[in-house]
Design a protein around this nucleic acid. Structure first.
Lengths: 201, 201, 201, 201
DNA sequence: CATGAATGAGAATTCATTCAT
DNA sequence: CATGAATGAATTCTCATTCAT
């Protein structure tokens, strides 16, 4: 019974989180009301406060859930034995697949957190930086092993790499880049090719 | 006398715009009040509404002023006779110098407009896209002339290029990348080198 | 329990409407603040907006509630079998009794709606006109049956009749006519006598 | 020179008053801004405050200018030797002609002053009442001379008479009564006939 | 006289959050 | 757990009025 109740409770919590993704994606964090989230979730809005202490905590939760997966994925890749180029491909792939799997969520994370220097971005800066650092670490090791040129600092290289991917996602979000499924796969190679091999003939 | 009055009036308008940059950069568009802008500018509250019809119009004005300069700069570069690699360098240079010259303004533009898919980004989408398109045009011509490989679409290449720069700026904004003056110059080459030549040895 | 809660909720709504009558009557629609209504009703400021979307909607509600009663009353009289003179008396009676029963409300309706050509009057024109038309219909039928002279158009006659009553109410509102209870009853006959029989000996 | 300047000054003052009539008629006293009046008059809005100490004073001026004419007209009629019926006709005629001559002004006077119990109506109550009293005086004398029945108090009769006319004007203002020129003339007789002779056959 | 920039008090409205049921 | 009525602080925007030029 307790388990059952608890399961149901978790379902509602999940419903609210999922609804929040839709609403944040559609109206933005500042452009929506808590009651919009409750409406979207089909629950009374007092219930939102039963599960979360504030509107902000909902976004924090969404961000952390997803970003921790990203960090785990990058860490796993990092610890593997692949050549550096393929490591970067795996990371690009994970991010693109995250978008393919739940574009609204990635939109929220990029728009409301990752680039929001004055609010959530500032709050989660350490978490965000962890991702940059892991990527920079991969670059540094590849430079040490001679796979990559070493006249570009790992930190810059990591920013260029991550920025290129995030911008492609932004292109999809804003609908200025075609976002058909095969473009998702193409995008992975494109980004890695561009950064790794360069555009020059 | 009329001229004098008019000049003074424009000065106040400029004061308000400049103050808004500081306040938006410090507190974010949604995190600040119109009275903060008036206080920062040292003018009465109502004067803000004498010159601008809303808080939003202030940000719109700031964005358009700067973004039009960017578009003009890119267009000028595009029309010049430089090799494509140097054209991209000039563009990267313009953006980095914009940041060096007025980091708060660029922070506001990137954080509040360029990536704000739900509010100002949506509103200024066409303007933003113009920049992407101009860059994509440069890439396309370089592909046609054989300077660049042509297995990556110009649109993707443009996004990767622009995204890499914007992310470097984001790194400076968040203080996760060192932002000493010499890094600004380094950054220009780093980005172009990375995208053009690639990271591979 | 649900019923109880719902009943109580409606009570509060009614409290707010009743308070609004007092406040509008005392200070005028434009002369009062929403907080005056909340204070008068003894509820929190925000609750007013829980039940009504704006200050205007409160007045709209008050007007429509009462005016619909008037329309029903006139229609009922119209459908009855009384002689036309008595029909007009019943209508005059209903309006005067409405004033006797709730002078503040009638004051608000006349001052803020019925004669407010630029705001609520314009908005509720169709509703207001329905009353005029019903009265004109009664006049037209009396003319057809020979009870009334037919050299005055029903529309004019209806306006004269309604205007005479409204002006008497205005006299009470402004305190330029005595408003003791027996005057209320006198007024009914006076108006009908004046319009029906004329002042001439 | 002084005279010339003074004449020009009066012209501007008149321009502002005339503009105010248009604007008050169109948007209502509370619905317009002082700058709307200045725009309509084609003057800078500081000038409005050169000639009038406040927005309210403009309406007061408009009302008093016109209402004093009405009082003079009624007084003149009252002092004349016409039979009472014709005196009332002259008064109705004056009011209707006032509307014919400047419907916007009469609209403003009725809507914003005569029925505005909480603002201008209250302020000008004595002036307004003077008109009622003059009319009541005419009725009283006609009752004393046997021209009119005396079972209706002069005050009530005056209200019915004035109310009937004002309501006809309201019908024109709201466009619920036909307002073609010949209707204006008809209206004068209709009102007097209705009140004097009654509607009954 | 004329202008319109400058002022700032005032009011409507919003909405996150609480809490009684 | 669930509901949604109730609260009230926070903020935007308006606009009458002043005043330097």
């Amino acid at each position: 019974m307790t388990t059952r109740g608890s399961e149901q409770a978790l379902e509602k919590r999940r419903q609210i989180l999922d609804a929040a993704v839709q609403v944040f994606a559609r109206e933005g964090f500042y452009g929506c009301r808590v009651s919009d989230i409750a409406d979207e979730a089909g629950v009374a809005y007092g219930l939102v406060y039963h599960y979360f202490s504030s509107k902000e905590e909902i976004l924090d939760t969404l961000f952390l859930e997803r970003w921790n997966l990203l960090l785990e994925a990058i860490a796993a890749v990092d610890e593997g034995d692949l050549p550096a180029r393929e490591k970067l491909f795996e990371i690009a792939s994970f991010i693109v697949e995250s978008y393919r799997h739940d574009p609204e969520l990635m939109k929220v994370i990029i728009v409301e957190v990752t680039r929001a220097a004055n609010s959530f971005g500032r709050r989660h800066l350490e978490k965000i930086r962890e991702a940059y650092d892991l990527i920079a670490g991969i670059v540094a090791k590849a430079q040490a092993s001679g796979e990559l040129r070493d006249d570009i600092t790992p930190a810059f290289a990591a920013m260029a790499f991550y920025g290129a991917i995030e911008q492609v996602l932004t292109g999809w979000i804003f609908d200025v880049l075609p976002g058909a499924p095969r473009d998702y796969d193409e995008a992975k190679s494109f980004v890695v090719t561009t950064i790794w091999d360069g555009l020059a003939r």
